[in-house]
Structure formats: C-alpha cells, structure tokens
C-alpha cells in the first residue's frame, strides 16, 4: 500500500499530524543526537559542561545566598536545596532558549526538505532532557552525601515533575520560536526574559518567604514543580497538591497556546525566514 500525500492550502489541526510525528521518530532521535554531539564540540572539557553548569551555580549560590544572605530553606542544607531548584530550572531555561532559536538555526534544512517542523523543538527538548538526566546524577550524589531518602511518592512523582517541566518548556519555547520567525527582536529579548523568570521562580529561595501569597506563584509551573520536588525529597514540609495541580493545568495551557501559534506560523515560516 502506497502512502498518499495530498498537498492543499493550509489545513487545521488533524490527527494525521500526530501520526506523522510518530512516523518520523528516527529523525527525531537523529536530530537530538546531532544537537548533543555538536553542542560541546570544540570545548576543552566537552560533555563535562553538563555537570559543571549546575555544580558551579550551586557553589556560587550556596556561598552568596546560603552563607552570606542566609536564605531560609525550611530546614534543609542550602546546597541540596538550591541544587533541586537548579537542575529543574536549567532544564527549563536551556530548553526554552534553544527551542526559541531552533527554527531560525535550522533554516537551511527547513527551506530544503520537508518533515513536521515540530520535530526541531521536540529534538531540542530531548537533547536538553539528556543533559538534565546527567545533572540528576549530581543530585543523587548529594542526596547520598546529606543522607536524604525520597519517599515512595517522591520517586513516583519525579517523572510527573519532569513531564510538567518539559511541557512548560515546550509550550513557551514553541511560542517564542514562532514569534522569532516574524520578529527578530525575540533573540535579544529572550535572555533578559529568562533571567526575569528566574526571579519569579523559587530557585534560590523558598516559596515560604512569600507567606500566604505563595499559591499565586503556582501559576508558574516551575514553582509548583520545584516546590513539590523539595517537599518530597527533603521532607521539610508536606506536599501541596493543589499548587501542583494549578501548575499542571498552567503548563498544559502554555503548551496549547504555544502549539497553536506554532501551527499557524510553521506553514508559512519558509516564506518569512
């Protein structure tokens, strides 16, 4: 049975798209692999950068926020407290910024051959996810050193936290990637935006300093994720399931908006880039 392709003026969403992405999964891996291989070429320490980034940030934050500023951590040692925030944050922020630029950076392929454009963001996400897994090794080491043992719910909920982070990053990334095709300002604004976002995310501090307004922060999916991870791994307070629920809904909404906008832009992106 031969595959029949019908080319028509732009279509709305169809299940065919999902099937198409599944058909291209080998390409997805190939692109992700390319991303991973190329990223650390021509660097002296190579892949070790994946470990360096969280470790160096952890040390710096521990010295300044932990020792000097004495940030409250709800009883946990500051290094492990901030590391949990950092690995999720770095997964999220690097995925958002790389996805935002992926359409423009792959323009030479986009203008010469067709496959679902969404493979680029997905491949980028996958590559950053591999970085995240490597960074998790540090977390495991630190957990052993400080003798924290996550409970069963903690282990079960960890994949869910990753999914929420990934969906949020993909949603925001897709939105910016589409915007970037049309307005090149995005490339310059994005680093500042991500930096701002870090301040409204409890990476270096605890949401408990916000007191009763803490729930507002849950709209930021990363806040819910980091908070839940800390409560489950460090047992400093009980998990707030409502807040995690709000975060989960927020990330799905982000993905919805990002995906729709991306769909609208991808069809004519070749004519614009």
């Amino acid at each position: 049975m031969k595959k029949i392709t019908i080319i028509k003026p732009r279509q709305a969403f169809s299940w065919q798209d999902i099937v198409e992405i599944w058909d291209c999964r080998e390409l997805l891996y190939a692109l992700a692999l390319r991303d991973i291989k190329v990223r650390y070429k021509q660097t002296i320490v190579g892949v070790a950068w994946v470990l360096f980034q969280p470790v160096v940030s952890m040390v710096v934050f521990t010295v300044f926020f932990g020792n000097f500023a004495k940030m409250p951590t709800d009883g946990a040692p500051y290094p492990i407290f901030v590391l949990i925030g950092l690995i999720f944050w770095q997964f999220f922020s690097s995925a958002v910024s790389d996805i935002s630029n992926c359409l423009i950076n792959n323009n030479s392929i986009i203008s010469k051959v067709y496959f679902p454009r969404v493979l680029f963001p997905l491949a980028t996400l996958l590559a950053r996810f591999v970085d995240f897994l490597v960074a998790c090794l540090i977390l495991v080491g630190m957990m052993i050193y400080y003798q924290f043992m996550p409970g069963l719910t903690g282990i079960l909920i960890f994949p869910l936290l990753i999914v929420v982070t990934a969906i949020a990053a993909l949603g925001l990334g897709l939105f910016f990637a589409s915007l970037n095709v049309k307005y090149r300002d995005v490339k310059f604004v994005l680093p500042y935006f991500i930096q701002m976002l870090m301040f409204v995310t409890p990476v270096v501090y605890s949401t408990s300093i916000l007191g009763k307004y803490g729930w507002i922060m849950a709209i930021n999916p990363l806040a819910g994720v980091i908070k839940t991870a800390r409560s489950e791994f460090l047992h400093s307070y009980a998990t707030n399931w409502t807040q995690l629920g709000i975060s989960a809904i927020a990330c799905v909404l982000m993905l919805g908006v990002g995906w729709l906008y991306f769909r609208a832009v991808e069809r004519y992106s070749v004519d614009t880039i």
Binding site: I7, K8, K112, V113
Partner: peptide, 26 residues
C-alpha cells in the same frame, strides 16, 4: 516537496517523496 503550502489548488502524490533541492542537505 511540501516545504511551502500552495495558496490554491491541490496536488496528490502517491508514494514516498524525497526532495533534493541542494546537495548535502542537513
């Protein structure tokens, strides 16, 4: 090769299509 959509009209392709618009794509 589906790189850009048409404004009007339709094309039907039966079979797997590969486009070679440049040497060394990717």
């Amino acid at each position: 090769s589906r790189i850009t959509p048409p404004t009007k009209g339709e094309a039907k392709l039966r079979g797997r299509v590969s486009s070679l618009l440049e040497v060394g794509t990717g």
